[in-house]
Design a protein around this nucleic acid. Structure first.
Length: 161
DNA sequence: GCCAACGTTGGC
DNA sequence: GCCAACGTTGGC
């Protein structure tokens, strides 16, 4: 099983949208970056991903989601009315893809970017913390995944004291 | 709102 | 194929 991190701006699509989706499942559309696209295509059914909120008051990991359908062509690329329309994309040879994701759970307490940065040493190599990283889809090393989840427990414990 | 970091575009 | 200009991302 592989682990990932998916970024979104909560004002356009956040955990609350996912919560309200039927069966808490939706498609992850609009990715228009080749590197991110390649990661999307590498995803396997059953893989898990952190849901990350960006460009908001408290950027950070807010939930855990699951890949429930592997990559298939993103129809918004062919829709001139869509914000993510790509006039150069070709239905015969789709270049943009999306996966279906299901909300597994919201974190008890979000793991903020600030908290992650405080653990820079333990999380060395985590793409999210690399300077200037703007990827919206990125892999997470299994060891980093475990370390981050442990952080959730630690934060929850310290808050409950 | 600022600005650094980066990807993409297009002229040459 | 180079690279300057431009647009976008995203933390602060």
């Amino acid at each position: 099983m592989n682990y990932w991190l998916l970024k979104s701006e909560p004002t356009s699509f956040g955990i609350d949208h996912l919560r309200k989706s039927p069966r808490q499942t939706t498609y992850w559309d609009g990715v228009r970056n080749y590197q991110a696209r390649n990661f999307l295509r590498a995803m396997k059914k059953g893989d898990q991903a952190f849901l990350y909120h960006s460009s908001c008051e408290e950027p950070g990991i807010i939930g855990v989601i699951q890949i429930v359908r592997e990559a298939y062509p993103d129809p918004t690329a062919f829709d001139p009315k869509d914000h993510h329309y790509d006039p150069k994309s070709d239905k015969q040879a789709p270049r943009w893809f999306m996966v279906d994701v299901k909300l597994q759970r919201a974190l008890e307490i979000p793991i903020t970017l600030r908290a992650l940065k405080e653990r820079r040493a333990a999380l060395a190599g985590l793409a999210l913390l690399q300077t200037g990283n703007r990827l919206s889809v990125m892999p997470v090393d299994p060891r980093h995944w475990a370390a981050i989840l442990k952080l959730e427990g630690a934060t929850a414990r310290s808050r409950s004291k």
